[in-house]
Design a binder for these strands. Structure first.
Length: 119
DNA sequence: GTTCTTACA
DNA sequence: TGTAAGTA
């Protein structure tokens, strides 16, 4: 199928699909016309990419995880240790971000309420 | 008409 | 990422 068809089936814009390819997330074949030619597997693969993206993972992390996922998989289940490691690392990063944001929020709370800061 | 690449805001 | 330009 061509790019617009894959876009229709996944909700991703053609722009995003080309970007995924640029990031090494998709490797569509090429027609003699130069048009990208995606196979059916591309649909679930793009859905996996979207899921991982919404989980906060970057394209580089996803590029490492994708090869661990059987392309015919419906639900993304941990298949190889690399996948678990990558997800665990991302979770650590997210936890760290949450802590920093919470600290920033606390500071704002004190400023808003005019409470003297603990230092 | 659709897609491609490149480039800019 | 959206969009415009100039092609194939």
């Amino acid at each position: 199928m061509r790019i617009s068809e894959l876009a229709r089936q996944t909700g991703a814009t053609p722009r995003a699909l080309r970007y995924y390819e640029e990031q090494g997330l998709l490797r569509p074949a090429r027609r003699t016309s130069g048009y990208r030619d995606y196979d059916r597997q591309a649909v679930p693969t793009v859905r996996h990419i979207q899921l991982l993206l919404s989980a906060g993972l970057g394209t580089t992390a996803i590029a490492e995880i994708l090869p661990c996922v059987p392309d015919d998989t419906t639900v993304l289940a941990p298949t190889c240790p690399e996948l678990l490691d990558a997800l665990a690392e991302e979770r650590t990063r997210i936890t760290s971000s949450i802590e920093k944001l919470a600290a920033a929020r606390d500071i704002l709370d004190r400023l808003i309420q005019g409470t003297p800061d603990p230092s």
